[in-house]
């Protein structure tokens, strides 16, 4: 099996997408001991090599973070290029969409676009793996990320065996679509305490920017 991974995170090598795919690749290599290349749309030196890499790979996985409810601009540019060149024609193409929101609902809208894109580009759609709640995984202790990384490793292993995203692992990663009932009531109360903002406060304080956190520099009406 030939596999190329297109990483569409604007953060490139320092992205959560890269971290997730590192685990996917680890699992993949347990079955196929040939490391699939991961190419970064945010890395200028990778861009020129992407067409050749796609030409020699039958399977393509595109991973990106959800940006303003959709794909990042660099990924849209990649889709435009693929549309113009027809390079994904007849390829097997799957997607992984990760986001910082705790519910997966935010990502299902772009999933519809991705499925339609594959029909438009005449490629075989392998599905979209949605993973919410990913923000902060680069700084979380191993105990907090162990389960997530193990799931991605297993996803890679199964992909190497079958050329598909395993449905059970995909469903497990998708997690909660939305919060309802008593849970959302409780979350609303917690939300008001500011407990969900601890991560942001930590980063603001590290950068001596906490006092400026509510700045609105582009307003024409500020004092």
């Amino acid at each position: 099996m030939s596999l190329a991974i297109i990483n569409g995170s604007p953060r490139g090598l320092k992205s959560n997408s890269e971290l997730l795919m590192r685990n996917f690749i680890e699992g993949y290599c347990n079955i196929i001991p040939r490391i699939p290349e991961q190419l970064f749309l945010a890395k200028a030196s990778d861009l020129a090599g992407i067409p050749d890499k796609i030409k020699t790979s039958q399977n393509i996985i595109v991973i990106f973070p959800l940006y303003t409810d959709c794909m990042p601009g660099i990924v849209m540019q990649f889709f435009e290029d693929a549309y113009e060149s027809g390079i994904l024609n007849s390829k097997n193409v799957g997607f992984i969409v990760q986001s910082g929101f705790p519910e997966s609902k935010h990502s299902v809208f772009v999933e519809r676009y991705l499925e339609k894109l594959c029909r438009r580009l005449n490629c075989n759609y392998l599905g979209t793996v949605i993973k919410a709640g990913v923000e902060g995984i680069r700084i979380q202790p191993p105990s907090m990320t162990k389960k997530l990384f193990a799931a991605f490793s297993l996803l890679g292993e199964e992909f190497a065996k079958t050329g598909e995203f395993d449905r059970t692992i995909k469903d497990q990663l998708m997690g909660r679509y939305e919060f309802t009932g008593a849970t959302i009531g409780l979350l609303k109360i917690i939300s008001k305490t500011g407990a969900f903002n601890m991560y942001w406060n930590k980063k603001l304080k590290e950068n001596n920017a906490f006092k400026l956190r509510n700045s609105n520099p582009y307003s024409e009406f500020r004092n």
Binding site: S9, R11, I74, W200, K203, L204, A209, L212, N214, N216
Partner: peptide, 16 residues
Amino acid sequence: KFCTGCWSCWWKTPGE
């Protein structure tokens, strides 16, 4: 330019 996901606008120079 494309966003680089640096998040300076959220945690270094808030809002900018």
